[in-house]
C-alpha cells in the first residue's frame, strides 16, 4: 500500500488549501466549556452577554483554533508530521453561535534543520466566517519527515 501522507519533499512553498465550512453551534461551546473548564461569562452567560459589545455569547478563541486544526485535516492530504513545534496566533473577531467558519491555509516557508531526515514547514492560516471576515489568523510550525 502506498503511503498517502505528504513528506517534506512533496510540500511546496506557496501551496494553498481551503477547507469545507463548519457551523459553530451552541453545543460546541457548551461542550468546550465542559471539556476545558473555561466557564468565562463570554461563553456561558447569555443574559450577561446581551449587554456586552458582542450582544450574545461567543465561542472560546481556543475552540476556534482547535476547530481549524480539525479543518486542516479536511483541507489537504495529511502531512508526514513528526512534531508540532509551536504557533503564533491572533484573534481578530468573535465567532458567534451559528457562524460558519472555514480555514484558508498557505505554505509560507520550508526550512532545513539540523536533523537531515526532517524539515520545518511554516503554514499561514486564516479562519474566515460566512461573510469573509477574518476572525482568527496565525502561523504554525510543523516538523515534517523527508522521504528516504
Amino acid at each position: 500500500m502506498t503511503d498517502p501522507r505528504r513528506y517534506f519533499d512533496d510540500i511546496q512553498v506557496g501551496e494553498e488549501y481551503e477547507s469545507p465550512g463548519r457551523t459553530v453551534t451552541e453545543a460546541d461551546i457548551v461542550l468546550f466549556a465542559g471539556l476545558s473548564g473555561d466557564y468565562n461569562v463570554l461563553h456561558t452567560d447569555a443574559e450577561f452577554m446581551k449587554q456586552s459589545i458582542f450582544g450574545e455569547r461567543i465561542a472560546h478563541g481556543l475552540l476556534g483554533l482547535a476547530i481549524q486544526a480539525g479543518l486542516f485535516t479536511r483541507a489537504t492530504q495529511a502531512y508526514a508530521t513528526l512534531a508540532f513545534v509551536g504557533l503564533r496566533w491572533k484573534f481578530k473577531g468573535p465567532i458567534k453561535i451559528g457562524d460558519t467558519i472555514r480555514l484558508r491555509a498557505k505554505v509560507a516557508a520550508k526550512k532545513e534543520i539540523s536533523k537531515p531526515d526532517r524539515g520545518l514547514v511554516t503554514v499561514e492560516r486564516t479562519v474566515v466566517n460566512q461573510r469573509g471576515e477574518v476572525v482568527q489568523e496565525g502561523e504554525t510550525d510543523l516538523i515534517v519527515e523527508r522521504r528516504r
Binding site: L31, L35, A66, A69, G70
Partner: peptide, 19 residues
C-alpha cells in the same frame, strides 16, 4: 468536538493541553 487528533495512539493532541 474539533476533528483534531493526535499523531499516534497514546499521545495527547498538541492543542488539547493548551485548551
Amino acid at each position: 468536538l474539533t476533528g483534531d487528533g493526535a499523531r499516534e495512539h497514546g499521545l495527547v493532541p498538541d492543542l488539547l493541553p493548551l485548551c
